[in-house]
């Protein structure tokens, strides 16, 4: 009975396949377009429209971006910021979310309210800048990781995942004499792989893409972030300002258009994210947690 599909099932499978492919095309194409544009000859790409393969294959815009030492310095800084920052953030989120997920913890509601409040109200740029100045964090690597050490939204998502883990597990461990740290590391975390993958993804992407901390808190070009570097490039050559300032000698010297650079910049910053997501995807498989929970 299981093997044989009814006509209705076949139709619904087919329908699903069509929808899935349509979704893929609609979501994949723009990204694909960006990548292909970045590998296209600026002049040929200008004639416009959408295209599936590069128009007049060319590596010029990639070469232009990758030629300078600064882009590698910035790339290294961004990697360091993302790795260190994500690590710190995930640890702090776990430590905060776990106690808040336990219904018997006293003061929990107040603490949650207090934390959530900061999601809605913030002091603004200038007071934060002054704080970092007083903490001597300006122009240091720590300005990238500490001021955004915990994201309230991510923490609450994690807390929610922890809450979904049946109490029976930790209760039995408690009876066996395990303390809270042991329960967290031996029972809760191993059961939360998907949740942790979510955290790594969210924090990682956030860290990787954020640039305002780089713009505001750091002047030293040895500490420059990739996103700041790329943003400055786009800002100085593209947009109303760049062209309005008559485009300068860049365009005089080379035929790479702002559009090409923009596409290359996007491709450059998305590809690392994509790699991380693909490697995390195996954790989003149904039923990973439940096997051990039975009982």
């Amino acid at each position: 009975m299981r093997k044989k599909k009814t006509p209705g099932q076949i139709v619904s499978e087919l329908l699903k396949l069509i929808i899935a492919l349509l979704l893929t095309i609609v979501c994949l194409y723009p990204f694909w377009h960006v990548i292909m544009y970045s590998f296209s000859d600026s002049k040929e790409a200008m004639s416009g429209g959408l295209f599936v393969l590069p128009k007049g294959f060319s590596l010029e815009s990639w070469k232009m971006l990758l030629k300078t030492k600064q882009v590698f310095i910035a790339f290294g800084n961004s990697i360091a910021k993302t790795v260190v920052g994500t690590l710190i953030s995930v640890v702090i989120s776990i430590l905060t979310a776990y106690p808040l997920s336990l219904p018997y913890v006293k003061g929990r509601k107040f603490l949650q309210g207090m934390i959530f409040f900061t999601m809605l109200f913030s002091g603004g740029t200038i007071p934060t800048y002054i704080l970092l100045k007083d903490l001597h964090m300006l122009d240091t690597f720590w300005a990238y990781v500490i001021p955004s050490a915990m994201n309230v939204y991510n923490m609450f998502i994690l807390r929610n995942f922890f809450q979904a883990i049946p109490d029976s597990l930790s209760e039995s461990a408690m009876l066996d004499g395990a303390n809270h740290v042991q329960i967290l590391t031996r029972i809760v975390l191993p059961l939360s792989k998907a949740a942790l993958a979510t955290q790594v993804m969210f924090y990682g992407v956030n860290r990787w893409n954020s640039y305002m901390d780089g713009v505001l808190y750091v002047n030293d070009s040895k500490l420059q972030l990739l996103q700041v570097y790329l943003r400055q490039i786009i800002n100085s050559i593209g947009g109303k300002q760049g062209i309005g300032a008559s485009a300068g000698d860049l365009s005089g010297a080379s035929a790479i258009t702002e559009e090409s650079i923009k596409m290359t910049v996007i491709a450059m910053s998305v590809i690392p994210v994509l790699i991380v997501y693909l490697s995390l995807q195996k954790y989003f498989v149904k039923g990973t947690m439940v096997g051990s929970v039975k009982g």
Binding site: V91, I92, S93, L95, T96, Y98, P99, L100, L102, V105, L111, M114, I115, T118, F121, S122, G123, G124, I126, P127, T128, I130, L131, I146, P147, A149, M150, M155, N179, H180, V181, L184
Partner: peptide, 25 residues
């Protein structure tokens, strides 16, 4: 007590980096 100890880094962060600058409001 361990549960409360766990909360220290997160709360310290919230207080220092979120509540102290709040005078900006």
């Amino acid at each position: 007590w361990m549960l409360y100890a766990m909360l220290i880094p997160g709360l310290a962060y919230i207080i220092i980096f979120k509540y102290i600058p709040m005078y900006g409001l």
